[in-house]
Design a protein around this nucleic acid. Structure first.
Length: 593
RNA sequence: GGUUGCGUAGCUCAGCUGGAUAGAGCACCUGCCUUCUAAGCAGGCGGUCCCAGGUUCGAAUCCUGGCGCAAUCACCA
């Protein structure tokens, strides 16, 4: 049994014996003892006073006495006001460490849960390259998938690619008009960047045309609709929907440019997907589902033929599902996609949608619609909503060119890692390939950790200077801790069958052990909250505890062989947790740096 | 205007299923490398936890009301 449960059960038994079953009707409040007090665990006794009918101090004393007298796991206790601070015996800690060390998968679920979850993330449009906002999304989703796996679930990593619609047509129109057949091959530009370039070109030309029309006396709204280039885009969308061969060919060609560009970006990130969905495939299923919802009376039709869902009972505005011309909207596609997914994976236990909080309302409505359509799984859909990434100078706006490009950012962060690592003289004796590999690990860890350490649901500030920092609360700090342990273990390995016993731990050793002890709980909690930030912050505190231990407890110099073995063992265990934990965050750790 | 989320040190963030003297990192200041990697460690400075009420033995945490910021409420995606 997980030892925290074991401890709380023992304490619970003590309370039961002393004060009866009513006293344990509510869960006991047991927490790790705050640093300023002496002890390992603290029982808050205030809630027990009405059962003990004694003062807080006396109540705590009674329980403390009982524990120490009835279990060798507890060595001593002290009472401060209504707080019972309990210390575990060092021999019990030693026993625990032995167990953790021989457990290859310490902290990770031993048994499969039998559940299969789908995690959706990234889900870009195919008209422009990925940017900083996508990075938070992708790192989050990828890590959440790993967290679910670490808790014994099976996971399908997926994305819905928004490969159709008016915005895609804009790039296509602009390319036809301005590109002179420019292709990724002809000018060595990544495909997604090339297509993005023409999306911007479209916008530029569009604005100019609007201005011309306005100068001719049209009002702005009208001009937006009348601009020739906009009309061509609309025209192209109609042709696309009708399956026009030439338009489809161009669409296909440009989308493939984008996909190969994305591919490179995902490779660099170290991210991959198990299953891809394309809106061009799922929107028509969405239409069918909406139409059958109309037949069954779930939805209603207005005079102009548009189809709606009445949400007044749910205190929301009615939602449009098919336009009067019969074309689909975003919501239609999302309904189709969800239905398709449950058809593809009948055993699915749930879908996690990693999508920004700007779409909170959209998903609330989507899940409500699925429920109205009587899909039993509608309440298994979960919107993992995360906050926007903001820059020191404000929000990213594509129109104002303040968007931070994902490829540029990764390159910058890796280059910076090279500079800083070189400054420290840590690149000596490495080949070009090794330097590349090491600095990629370091740079990306800085970036990923920076984006993951903040609670997903909060908006966050992205400061470029901080994101490439190697000191303090950063990915490289954790990597460095790992590399130091590895360097140590290369000099002397712990003996496999050594058993820790009769070791009196120094305070730094005990702090480290305590930090290690909660790793399984952290893995569980990260999954419950779908929050890599919990794990990220934990790993930082673990490494801090280790560094403090490392500083104050010499290992190779220590004479007592028993202590040396213990310290090597606990170092090895720490390194395994760091590696595993960072892996779950999607971050690689270098063996040396 | 309605709905939802957020407001903690100069800055970026933890802590929030109520618990003790609210914690980290950055920045600034002091020490520590002939000793296992100083990308480190030890310490200092720094707080009306937005405001006002309420519940409670106990509130940064829960409730109500303000103030401020953000998102959203599209025949956009």
């Amino acid at each position: 049994m997980y030892f925290l449960n074991q401890i709380s059960e023992t304490i619970s038994n003590a309370v039961y014996s002393l004060f009866g079953d009513e006293a344990i009707a509510k869960p006991l409040v047991i927490e790790q003892t705050k640093k300023v007090f002496v002890g390992d665990f603290t029982l808050v006794v205030f809630p027990l006073l009405k059962f003990s009918k004694k003062k807080p101090e006396e109540t705590a004393d009674l329980i403390g006495d009982y524990l120490v007298n009835n279990s060798s796991n507890f060595s001593s206790f002290n009472v401060v006001k209504g707080f019972l601070n309990i210390q575990l015996s060092h021999s019990y800690w030693g026993e625990l460490i032995n167990n953790w060390c021989i457990d290859e998968s310490f902290g990770i679920a031993k048994k499969e849960s039998g559940r299969l979850y789908m995690v959706e993330y990234s889900s870009p449009n195919t008209n422009k390259p990925l940017h900083l906002g996508h990075l938070r999304n992708i790192f989050l989703g990828d890590s959440v998938a790993n967290i679910l796996k670490a808790n014994g679930h099976k996971v399908v990593k997926t994305q819905i690619i928004n490969d159709r619609g008016i915005h895609i047509c804009k790039s296509m129109v602009a390319w036809l008009k301005f590109a002179n057949d420019e292709s990724p091959e002809s000018n060595q530009l990544k495909g997604d960047h090339l297509v993005g370039k023409y999306y911007v070109e479209f916008d530029k030309a569009y604005k100019e045309e609007i201005q011309v029309l306005v100068n001719e006396g049209l009002d702005v709204e009208k001009a937006k609709l009348e601009a020739p280039i906009f009309k061509s885009a609309q025209d192209m969308l109609l042709k696309w929907e009708k399956g026009d061969v030439e338009v489809r060919a161009l669409w296909s060609k440009m989308n493939n440019w984008v996909y190969s560009g994305f591919e490179k970006t995902y490779n660099k990130m170290g991210v991959e997907f198990d299953k891809l969905y394309y809106e061009s495939d799922t929107y028509s299923l969405g239409k069918l589902v909406v139409e059958s919802g109309l037949d069954s009376g779930t939805f209603y039709q207005k005079e102009d033929k548009s189809i709606w869902c009445d949400l007044s009972k749910d205190k929301m505005d009615d939602k449009l599902l098919l336009r009067s011309d019969g074309t689909s909207v975003y919501m239609t596609q999302d309904i189709g996609t969800a239905v398709q997914r449950y058809e593809d994976y009948p055993g699915l236990s749930g879908i996690v949608y990693t999508v920004g909080n700007e779409q909170n309302h959209h998903f609330k409505v989507l899940f409500k619609l699925l429920s109205k359509l009587d899909y039993s799984w509608s309440d298994e859909c979960y919107h993992l909503s995360y906050g926007m990434v903001e820059l020191p100078e404000g929000k990213m706006k594509s129109r104002e060119g303040t968007v931070v490009d994902a490829d540029d950012l990764m390159d910058a962060v890796i280059n910076e890692a090279k500079l800083l690592t070189n400054e420290r003289g840590h690149l000596e004796g490495l080949s070009e390939d090794e330097i590349e590999s090491l600095c990629t690990k370091i740079g990306l860890s800085g970036l990923k950790y920076y984006l993951l350490k903040v609670d997903p649901k909060r908006k966050m500030m992205f400061d470029p200077k901080e994101s490439i920092d190697l000191n303090g609360h950063t990915g490289p700090f954790i990597q460095y801790g790992y590399a130091r342990i590895k360097s140590l273990l290369n000099k002397k390995k712990s003996t496999k069958d050594f058993i820790v016993k009769d070791v009196e731990f120094k305070s730094q050793e005990l702090e480290l052990i305590k930090s290690i002890s909660i790793f399984p709980e952290i893995i569980r909690q990260s999954s419950q909250e779908l929050s890599p930030a919990i794990l990220a912050n934990y790993l930082f505190s673990l490494v801090k505890a280790y560094n403090s231990f490392y500083q104050s407890c010499p290992i190779l110099k220590e004479e007592d062989e028993n202590i040396v073995e213990f310290r090597l063992k606990v170092s090895d265990l720490t390194s395994r947790i760091i590696k595993k934990g960072m892996f779950i965050l999607g971050i690689k750790v270098p063996e040396r740096m």
